[in-house]
Simulated scan of single mutants.
Amino acid sequence: MTAPQSLISSILQTDTLRWHLLGVVAALGLPDCWIAAGFIRNAIWDHLHRRSGAPLRGDVDVIWFDPERCDPAQDRKHEARLHAVEPSIAWSVKNQARMHVRNGDAPYRSATDAMRYWPETATAIAARRLGSDICEIAAPFGVDDLLNLLLRPTSHFAVEKRSIYEDRIRTKGWLSIWPHLRSAEN
């Protein structure tokens, strides 16, 4: 694990709620399973804005990969299991082995590969808990943009899907919530 990934792991491990939720998801025992996107990104941006104990914003995105179980009913079953353990959390579970169809992409090869097709580099990050004290980080674009508070579209959203990327920044209010964010293009 690189030093920047170790920093992210440390931030997640010291956040009692996030560390607990990583354990809840690990207990599902799903293949190639992670908590991703805003759950990680927001924790890091809050930390870099010196906000400790900030509440979770939005849903908790659980991604996994199993091409043999692509029925969306499987995802709903896992959401129900998570909700039974932590009913106050808005869980969203998606098997990335089927998401390429919805997104109009070539089939993904893994959960990490699927993140390459997400809108922002800082959002394309995931973590999973291994045992009681290990946190693994997956970041197909690295973690520099996330740690440097840079907003940058992935290559899939830089041109033809650019409006989706720009709408996300505007509608999610990121620049108001985290005023130190800046565009990598400025």
Rank of each mutant, 00 (worst) to 15 (best):
T123P: 03
D113I: 13
D133F: 03
I164C: 05
A114L: 15
A139T: 00
I134W: 04
R128S: 12
A124V: 09
N148E: 05
E166C: 11
G131N: 15
P107R: 15
V101P: 06
F157Q: 02
A122R: 13
A111S: 10
L175I: 09
D144C: 15
I125Q: 10
R116Y: 02
W118S: 04
E120T: 07
R102I: 14
K172Y: 01
A122P: 10
R152K: 11
V143M: 11
C135A: 07
L146R: 05
D167I: 05
A122H: 08
G131R: 06
P140N: 10
A111W: 03
S110H: 04
T112R: 12
S155W: 02
D167C: 14
P140C: 09
N148K: 09
D133Y: 00
V101C: 06
A139Y: 00
A127Y: 00
R116S: 02
K172V: 02
D167E: 06
R116W: 00
T121L: 15
T123S: 14
F141D: 04
H156Y: 07
E136D: 13
R170I: 14
E166N: 06
R109G: 15
K172R: 08
T112P: 01
L147A: 14
S155R: 06
G142M: 15
D105M: 09
E160I: 13
P153V: 12
Y165F: 10
R168Y: 05
D105W: 01
R168M: 11
R162E: 13
A127S: 01
S163Q: 09
G104H: 05
S155K: 00
W174D: 13
T112K: 07
A138L: 07
D133K: 04
N103T: 01
Y165R: 00
L149T: 07
A111Q: 06
L149K: 08
E166I: 13
T121G: 07
A138H: 01
L147T: 11
P107T: 10
D113E: 08
V159M: 03
I177G: 12
L151T: 05
R152H: 14
F141S: 04
S163Y: 01
R168Q: 05
G131L: 10
G104E: 07
V143N: 01
R168H: 02
L149C: 08
Y117T: 12
R152P: 04
L147Q: 08
R170T: 15
S110K: 09
G173H: 02
R162F: 13
A114N: 12
E160P: 12
V143W: 03
A158S: 14
G173S: 04
I137V: 03
D144A: 14
T121E: 10
H156D: 13
A138N: 09
M115Y: 00
A138I: 00
T121I: 10
W174T: 08
R170S: 05
W118P: 00
E136A: 11
A126D: 00
G142C: 07
W118T: 02
A138C: 10
M115T: 02
A111C: 06
